[in-house]
């Protein structure tokens, strides 16, 4: 991680952790603005932070990790793309990808901690192979969503990222299905209560999956583009994006 991103994370993480799912735009927006976060992507000449998309990923991901309510990703993206444009839709799809990646990591942590604490049959749930195998699957999905988000951010910083954003949002969407299912199964009944915090993550994850392109939308877009390019271009196109 670059120094800028480490600094950003150190700045945003405590505030986001404090605000969490209870954050309220009307009450807390000033504190988010005080850190200069909405201006993250504006150049320094324009009074902004001069951040790139990998910096934005750090902020979006942490917002997802803490199930943050205020519309920070929307505000950040609104500074660089106008609402209703194709670019805005794509960039928000990227933001949601990053939020999903963060929220999945948070739900995974909650689930692993719970499995290590909760005892049944005289031992922690996490000692049962069936539970271990489910959580391992979840960890794989969370890892895939996070790697996809990084890949999309890197592509945005290189230039055209239409393919990468489509692929990353689709991959993250799919991880939501597995991750929320395992998180709730491992938590049992307590995870189904209003009192317990899991639903702040899982309900947002379900929302974010359908925001800015659901699975069928992005798989249709990607499928159309790879079929149009043809079988013999598939692999050369894929690697040309990073070469």
């Amino acid at each position: 991680m670059s120094d800028t991103r480490r600094m950003l994370a150190e700045m945003a993480d405590p505030l986001f952790a404090e605000l969490g799912f209870e954050a309220d735009d009307a009450r807390d927006w000033a504190r988010v603005e005080d850190l200069g976060l909405p201006l993250l992507l504006l150049s320094e000449e324009d009074g902004g932070f001069g951040g790139n998309w990998q910096d934005a990923l750090t902020v979006f991901r942490l917002a997802g990790y803490h199930a943050l309510g205020p519309s920070l990703p929307e505000a950040i993206v609104a500074k660089v793309a106008s609402q209703g444009s194709d670019a805005h839709f794509q960039l928000m799809a990227f933001a949601r990808t990053a939020q999903i990646a963060g929220a999945l990591d948070a739900a995974l942590r909650l689930s692993v901690d719970y499995a290590n604490e909760r005892q049944q049959f005289g031992r922690p749930l996490g000692k049962f192979q069936a539970v271990q195998q489910s959580l391992a699957t979840f960890a794989c999905e969370a890892a895939a969503a996070n790697c996809a988000a990084v890949g999309a951010a890197q592509a945005l910083d290189r230039g055209d990222a239409a393919f990468e954003i489509a692929a990353a949002k689709l991959r993250a969407n799919q991880a939501v299905g597995v991750g929320t299912r395992v998180a709730h199964q491992v938590h049992g009944a307590i995870g189904f209560t209003q009192e317990y915090s899991l639903h702040h993550l899982t309900r947002r994850l379900w929302q974010w999956r359908s925001d800015f392109g659901h699975d069928a939308y992005w798989s249709g877009v990607l499928g159309k583009s790879v079929i149009e390019r043809g079988a013999d271009n598939f692999w050369p196109d894929l690697v040309a994006r990073t070469d």
Binding site: A144, F163, A167, S219, G223
Partner: peptide, 10 residues
Amino acid sequence: AGRLAAEAWT
């Protein structure tokens, strides 16, 4: 095709 392409990329 789209879904398999996305997974290959990831």
